[in-house]
Design a binder for these strands. Structure first.
Length: 369
RNA sequence: GCCGCGUUGGUCAAGAGGUUAAGACGCCUCCCUUUCACGGAGGAAUCACGGGUUCGAGUCCCGUACGUGGUACCA
């Protein structure tokens, strides 16, 4: 190896004058134990003989990270340095740099945080797309590979949920509480309870956090997000009050913000497709006639409210000797398109008399085809 | 390979020598609901392995295995 340690002083001076490119390294001491106190790992030690003489200044004169952090932290009077555990191995280099340059007494407190792991080991940002879940907070296109990765935000995660799920990966308050707001985290966080080992990321649990936060969120807070979602889908969302009522009605069924679309489009537009297969097998003339009569009776209904609609429906069912339950599913398919959503009569009430009648009639023709 | 760090159900985890080893996610069963979801009740599943120390070990020590990070004139 050729360096100033193996070359004679004369040769070194000569090379310097010739302008030969060179780097500056840190010279590790021999037979020393470099140990320090990490806030998370506590006492950590390394044998100096096994640590490399890292490059501090590159041949082009630029400092490497090792030199840069130490100088930077000193200049910024950093008291606590938090970084990922991947830096633990190079900590002895930084410790020595502090000792040589600015004094150990000025060195910040170290905390090496546990890593977040993917399903098969370390979570690699480069592999973002293949996991089937986001790895970036927001949409990201790699400038080199031009590979696009959808972010948590765009996927439909609430910022509150994202912060919450991240906080619970590597830290635990020691209580049964799992749902924390930023304020609660700030109040309850303690470095002593940060874990030492990395945690595997579980997308199912991440979605659970989001679901919980959607349920916790007020309609008021959800409104701008959902409104934005519907705007991108070009759906006319009618008036604000109506929209908010809908949000309140379906939010407990939404895991991701994007779920609001399919969970509530039918409040604004008639369903494109109907799950007629759910109805056809048990369809008969009696039911056909029930819905035909229902239409005329609903047309004559004085007040269009939930109770009135329900009474009308049930009375006619009794008259026809059909169990109301057997008719509710078809009714739901007609109004919603599928087997989901809030109470049927609530839906009928909200979308209005005219729309309800239209949907029943158009569904009737589809079922008979 | 070498060095560091770590190891409680599938996953996140509580636990700081003596517990029937919390809780959550997911899964399954049931109740509620003649939809889906919410909610409620219950179930299956665990201390990596081997040695010590101790009256007693998930908890302390050693070894092995495994995982993870580092081992770049990247950060």
């Amino acid at each position: 190896m050729q360096n100033s340690l193996t070359l004679t002083n004369e040769v070194v001076q000569q090379y310097l004058q010739e302008g030969k490119p060179y780097v500056v390294r840190i010279k590790m001491p021999e037979n020393e134990i470099i140990s320090f106190n990490d806030m998370i790992h506590h006492e950590v030690s390394f044998e100096s003989n096994l640590v490399d003489d890292k490059v501090l200044l590159k041949a082009d004169g630029m400092p490497t990270y090792h030199l840069a952090v130490v100088v930077d932290d000193y200049l910024m009077k950093i008291s606590h340095a938090f970084r990922g555990e991947e830096w633990l191995s190079s900590a002895p280099v930084h410790i020595l740099l502090w000792k040589y340059l600015f004094g150990l007494e000025n060195m910040p407190q170290w905390a090496h945080l546990p890593l977040i792991l993917g399903p098969n080991g370390k979570l690699s940002k480069r592999d973002g797309a293949k996991y089937g879940f986001p790895v970036y907070a927001m949409n990201w296109t790699d400038p080199r590979s031009e590979e696009f990765t959808e972010g948590f935000k765009e996927k439909g995660f609430l910022p509150e949920a994202f912060i919450n799920l991240l906080a619970m990966l590597g830290w635990n308050g020691g209580t049964e509480q799992e749902l924390f707001s930023m304020e609660e985290l700030i109040a309850q966080f303690s470095i002593e309870r940060v874990h030492k080992s990395g945690a595997k990321f579980d997308y199912e649990k991440a979605k659970w956090f989001n679901h919980e936060w959607i349920k916790k969120s007020t309609t008021e807070a959800l409104y701008p997000l959902v409104k934005n979602l519907f705007e991108t889908k070009n759906v006319n969302t009618k008036n604000e009050d109506y929209f908010k009522t809908v949000i309140g009605l379906v939010k407990e069924r939404c895991t991701l913000v994007s779920d609001f679309y399919e969970q509530s489009v039918y409040f604004f537009e008639a369903p494109q497709t109907l799950d007629v297969e759910a109805v056809k097998p048990k369809w008969n003339e009696n039911k056909q006639s029930f819905f035909e009569i229902l239409c005329t009776q609903l047309t004559e209904l004085k007040a269009w409210d939930v109770i009135e609609i329900e009474n009308c429906f049930k009375n006619l069912a009794t008259e026809k000797s059909i169990k109301p339950g057997e008719l509710q599913l078809p009714m739901r398919i007609m109004l919603v398109g599928g087997k989901f959503g809030p109470a049927v009569f609530e839906i009928a009430h909200l979308i209005g008399k005219e729309e309800t009648l239209n949907r029943i009639q158009s569904a009737l023709t589809k079922i008979n085809n």
